[in-house]
C-alpha cells in the first residue's frame, strides 16, 4: 500500500464518470414522490404563459397589426407570440426546480449529503436534478402545446419538432440554473437569477421581431440563449426551416453541457470537502 496525497476533491470517486448506468433517475423518482402529494405547486406554473398568451397575444394583439414573418408573410400577432411563449414555458419551467429549490435542498435540508452516503454519486445528483427540472419544463411545454393546438396556432407540420426543441431549452436552462445556484451563498443572491430570468424573457425577441432593434442591440440579443430557443421553436411552428436552426440547437446543447459540467464540479467541491 502506498501513501497518497491529494490536493482537491475533483479526482475523488464520487465525481468520476464510469460506464455503470447512472442513478440520476432515483432523484427524479424522489421528486415524483414529493410532487405526487404537492402537485398543485406544479399546476399553478402552467397558467403564467397561458395568461401572457391571452393578455398580450390576444389582447394587445388586437391593437397591433399583423407581423411580417421571415419570408415577408403576414402573421397575426398571437401566431407570432405563441411559439415564443411556448419556448418560455420550457425555460421558466426548467428554472423552478433547478435554482431556489436546489439551493434549499443543498444548504438547508442537506438532502444531497444524505443521498451521497448511498451508492449515488455527485454526478447522479447533478444529472438527476437537471433531468427532473427539464421534465418539469416539458410538462408546461406539452400543456401549452395543447392550448396552441386548440387555438389553431400551428402553421406547419414542423411544429412536432417543437417538443424536442423545448427539451433542449429545458436542458440548457436547468443545467445553467443549477450551475449558477451552486455559486449562491444566500437567498438574497437569487435576486440576480430572478432578474436575469426576467430580462431574458422580455428581450429575447419574445414579443416582437428582432428587426425592431437597432443593429447593435440585435447583436446583443443574438447572444441571448433564450433568443436561440425562441428562434428555434418559432421557426419550427411557423415552418421557416433553414440551416440556422441547427446553430440554435447547437448553442443550447453546448450551453447545457457546460452548465452540467460546472454544476457537477461545484457540487463535488461543496458536498465532498
Amino acid at each position: 500500500m502506498s501513501t497518497v496525497t491529494r490536493t482537491g476533491s475533483i479526482t475523488f470517486d464520487a465525481l468520476s464518470s464510469s460506464r455503470r448506468p447512472g442513478r440520476g433517475r432515483r432523484l427524479v423518482e424522489r421528486n415524483l414522490l414529493h410532487y405526487k402529494v404537492h402537485w398543485t405547486i406544479i399546476v399553478s406554473g402552467f397558467f403564467e404563459p397561458l395568461f401572457y398568451l391571452l393578455s398580450i397575444g390576444v389582447g394587445v394583439g388586437k391593437l397591433v397589426g399583423p407581423v411580417v414573418g421571415a419570408h415577408g408573410e403576414q402573421l397575426t400577432y398571437r401566431t407570432f407570440v405563441a411559439p415564443a411563449l411556448l419556448a418560455s414555458s420550457a425555460f421558466n419551467g426548467a428554472l423552478y426546480d433547478s435554482t431556489m429549490n436546489v439551493f434549499f435542498k443543498l444548504k438547508h435540508d442537506k438532502l444531497y449529503d444524505a443521498v451521497l452516503a448511498t451508492p449515488m454519486r455527485v454526478r447522479d445528483v447533478a444529472v438527476g436534478e437537471i433531468t427532473w427540472a427539464l421534465i418539469r419544463g416539458l410538462i408546461y411545454a406539452v400543456a401549452f402545446l395543447i392550448v396552441m393546438g386548440c387555438m389553431g396556432l400551428f402553421e406547419s407540420w414542423w411544429a412536432v419538432l417543437a417538443l424536442p426543441a423545448c427539451t433542449l431549452i429545458g436542458f440548457a436552462f436547468a443545467a445553467t440554473g443549477m450551475a449558477a445556484t451552486s455559486y449562491m451563498r444566500t437567498f438574497e443572491d437569487f435576486e440576480f437569477i430572478t432578474m436575469t430570468q426576467l430580462v431574458l424573457f422580455l428581450f429575447s425577441a419574445t414579443f416582437y421581431p428582432l428587426s425592431v432593434y437597432p443593429r447593435w442591440m440585435q447583436v446583443v440579443v443574438e447572444c441571448s440563449p433564450l433568443y436561440h430557443g425562441v428562434h428555434l421553436v418559432r421557426s419550427l411552428v411557423l415552418g421557416d426551416i433553414g440551416p440556422d436552426l441547427l446553430l440554435d440547437a447547437l448553442y443550447l446543447a453546448v450551453l447545457g453541457l457546460i452548465g452540467l459540467t460546472i454544476a457537477n464540479r461545484r457540487l463535488a467541491l461543496l458536498l465532498t470537502p
Binding site: 497518497v4 491529494r6 476533491s9 464520487a14 449529503d113 451521497l116 452516503a117 465532498t272
Partner: peptide, 8 residues
C-alpha cells in the same frame, strides 16, 4: 463513509 476524500 466515503463522502470526503482523505488528504493522506
Amino acid at each position: 463513509g466515503c463522502t470526503s476524500p482523505r488528504s493522506g
